[in-house]
């Protein structure tokens, strides 16, 4: 369990230091297969999508890059589906992308301006998912 103590630390520091709405923050640590390379990201769910993941809007997560190298949005979406979405995954994804009508912002920027699924993520990136499909 040596890797566990190694990896809780960065999460805990960041947990205290930034982001408002501290109440909503959940730290998800994938203890089992966490490597030193794991990348820390902030994921935010809104517009009703938070209901699919324990009604928590903000999740601080550590995600392994695929092949121990890069982490793309495509990989992140698959990771979110497996690790965060607790119910009705079809409300969030369609095929290997988000369901049409779900907006994605990477560091406050529309992902349609970047490479979408091929966007390469880096440490401390903030990814926001908002559903447009709920309520008028």
């Amino acid at each position: 369990m040596e890797s566990l103590s190694q990896t809780i630390r960065p999460g805990a520091v960041n947990f205290k230091s930034g982001i408002p709405n501290n109440n909503f923050i959940e730290e998800v640590l994938l203890c089992a297969n966490l490597k030193l390379l794991a990348m820390q990201l902030t994921l935010e769910f809104g517009g009703g999508l938070e209901l699919l993941c324990n009604s928590l809007k903000i999740h601080k997560v550590n995600v392994d890059p695929q092949d121990g190298e890069k982490l793309t949005m495509k990989h992140l979406l698959a990771w979110v589906r497996t690790n965060l979405i607790k119910e009705r995954p079809e409300m969030f994804m369609k095929g290997d992308s988000v369901r049409p009508g779900v907006l994605v912002l990477i560091n406050d920027c529309d992902w349609e301006l970047s490479e979408q699924l091929d966007t390469v993520l880096e440490e401390d990136d903030v990814v926001v998912f908002i559903s447009t499909l709920h309520g008028g």
């Binding site: 406050d108 920027c109 529309d110 301006l113 970047s114 966007t119 390469v120 401390d124």
Partner: peptide
């Protein structure tokens, strides 16, 4: 940290980086 394709600027003000 925005991951924009190319180094384009806002097509209206031609000054700031685009956000959507």
């Amino acid at each position: 940290a925005a991951k924009l394709k190319g180094g384009r600027l806002c097509s209206i003000c031609n000054d700031r980086r685009p956000a959507l």
